[in-house]
Computed example of a mutant assay.
Amino acid sequence: MRIFHIATLADWTDAQASGAYTTSTVGVTLEEEGFLHASRADQWEGVRARYYADIDEPLVLLEIDTDLLDVPVVEELPAPGATETFPHVYGALDPAAVVTVTRL
């Protein structure tokens, strides 16, 4: 399955150098949140509009092949009262699981 994550170019560049992507969302680490936020193909544009519209730094869209992950992915409701599920990645993302990087 393919899932998507919006990242700052700086965070993605750091992940490639270190071998692990650990930013849950802008300004929030995996350690703080407990998982990495992700989206399905039909969701990422809405996520970008809602949560990344005010971000001035360059962004990239990471396309992740879940078959290449060595950590669990769980479909979950993002907040109380929500009806739409989102994939959450429970662990650091190995850059090798990212099959496409698109500049946004």
Rank of each mutant, 00 (worst) to 15 (best):
R50G: 00
G46S: 09
W12K: 08
D56N: 15
V47W: 02
S24G: 09
D56C: 11
H5Q: 02
G91W: 06
D14M: 05
L77T: 08
V47S: 08
A7L: 04
F4H: 15
D94K: 06
G81H: 06
Y52F: 15
S39Y: 06
A17P: 12
Y90P: 00
S39V: 15
G81M: 12
Y51G: 10
D67T: 12
G81V: 00
Y51W: 13
F35D: 05
L9E: 08
P95V: 01
E33M: 14
L77A: 12
A38S: 14
A79M: 06
G91A: 08
S18Y: 08
V73R: 01
A10Q: 04
T102V: 02
G34Q: 03
T66Q: 06
V74I: 03
V74R: 06
Q16E: 13
V89M: 01
L93F: 10
L104P: 14
E75A: 03
P95E: 02
L9R: 05
A92Q: 02
P72N: 12
T8R: 13
Q43R: 05
T13W: 11
F4W: 15
D65F: 00
E31F: 06
P95A: 00
D14N: 12
T66R: 00
L77Q: 03
T100L: 07
L30C: 03
E31W: 10
T83G: 15
E75H: 08
